[in-house]
Design a protein around this nucleic acid. Structure first.
Lengths: 241, 241
DNA sequence: AGTATATTGTATATTTTTTATACAATAATT
DNA sequence: AATTATTGTATAAAAAATATACAATATACT
């Protein structure tokens, strides 16, 4: 651990991010695994510098893990139960990693900082998964995309945070057209439909879906995409804006 | 000021509440005025105790100002700009109230606590305005309901917080039926319509509005209400649940 | 080259929902 | 008993959502 307790962070506030990507007809979430014994997976998280907007902090946390800026971000909820702290998780972490973390008392200051009760601001983010090269940070053993239905067991309430983020994403889709942020630069209508079917976990009727999306008037039609398949080639579209 | 800096509050986190009521066909907001020279109006605000859920904190803040519990509450957004602090406001407050607040340096600790950069969690709440007897707290000169269109100039970004709360209220109305929390125990359909027209600032067609509301299937029809007017008496309804 | 096949784009029919209009019921007043 | 202003409900018209039909087409297969 770095000397987090000495850095210029706001105390007791954390940012937890749920980064969604879309690949192989599945919604995926970027989840780092901690470089400690014991299989600990946690959402990309961080803290807010004194001179930093909370949105900047969320951007920074994601930029550090993805290498890309200008990620589509939405603040969706604050998790503020008094019982919300990492004491249980940290005790187990230390118990399983005595050689690395040493005796509690030798790291008391650091330990105390971490076991404070934290109020966490939840952000979800959407990316074109092909643009991201996941970046381990110093605490990570790995960082990988996990399909939503195959998420590993996560620490604390991180699983519930993912669930709340998914609900927010679905709900936002009614007014915002943010789903297109999950797709590559260009895509076919079929790909859009598969994405929507994945997000809402229900089928759409092809012809009406096509009309509905085109009526949104947010797509620009490009050239055709010839795949070599023995059928009519679909048009490519891009999200205008 | 009490010794806020010595109390067991989480630092740099505040709760700002926008309490909506409905009276005389107007949406109103409960706004205390500070008991200092200089006309300072601020939203009912407060801090979070170490052992307290953020929602409990919001409830407590509103209970203290209204005397009632079980207020309908919704967390709607976090305001977290780095530039968000009360320094400007406090400087002016002290400047205008030297006899009461004394020299800055004599209250340095208190002053420092207040001028920290705060991240504020916004809650809006809905009440039956007739149930509330506004309670001044020790810092208030007055506390009054102000029509949304006649709000006094408020400190810091509190006016924008009200605006964001109103937007959230409107947006939530699509899925939740929380508007009924603004009405008294029983009400006529006309009163419901007037409330909706006030919230959305647009007219509804009476017959279709009535059907729409009844189709929600959240109202229970009671006896008629005889007002003495020379026309058919309307039914009273109550919000079931 | 001509036919077959799977998919795509669009048009149209059908159903449902929303909005507009009509009208009977009724609580006082005259 | 007729009059008036509202209320409750029914129905007509318009719009939106959903279902169905079909022509266009990129390639494979004969």
């Amino acid at each position: 651990m770095n000397n987090l307790s000495e850095q210029n962070y706001i105390q007791q506030i954390s940012i937890d991010t749920v980064l969604f990507g879309y690949e192989e007809k599945q919604l995926k979430v970027l989840v780092p695994k901690l470089d400690f014994k014991g299989d600990f997976w946690a959402l990309p998280s961080g803290f807010v510098y004194q001179g930093e907007d909370i949105e900047q902090a969320a951007e920074r946390i994601l930029r550090d893990r993805t290498g890309i800026s200008n990620i589509y971000l939405e603040q969706f909820r604050v998790f503020g139960k008094a019982s919300r702290n990492s004491m249980e998780f940290l005790d187990r972490l230390i118990e399983l990693n005595p050689e690395k973390l040493g005796e509690k008392r030798h790291k008391q200051q650091e330990y105390d900082w971490f076991t404070q009760r934290f109020i966490s601001i939840g952000y979800y983010a959407l990316v074109d998964i092909s643009k991201v090269v996941p970046q381990k940070n110093t605490l990570d053993e790995s960082i990988e995309w996990y399909a939503l239905h195959e998420l590993p067991v996560m620490i604390m309430d991180h699983r519930q945070i993912v669930e709340a983020a998914l609900q927010a994403l679905r709900s936002d889709l009614d007014e915002k057209q943010n789903a297109f942020n999950l797709l590559p630069e260009t895509f076919t209508m079929k790909e859009v439909q598969e994405l929507y079917e994945t997000i809402f976990d229900k089928p759409f009727v092809r012809t009406n879906f096509q009309k509905m999306i085109l009526d949104l008037d947010v797509l620009e039609r490009l050239e055709k995409k010839f795949t070599g398949a023995a059928n009519k080639a679909p048009y490519l579209y891009k999200f205008k804006k």
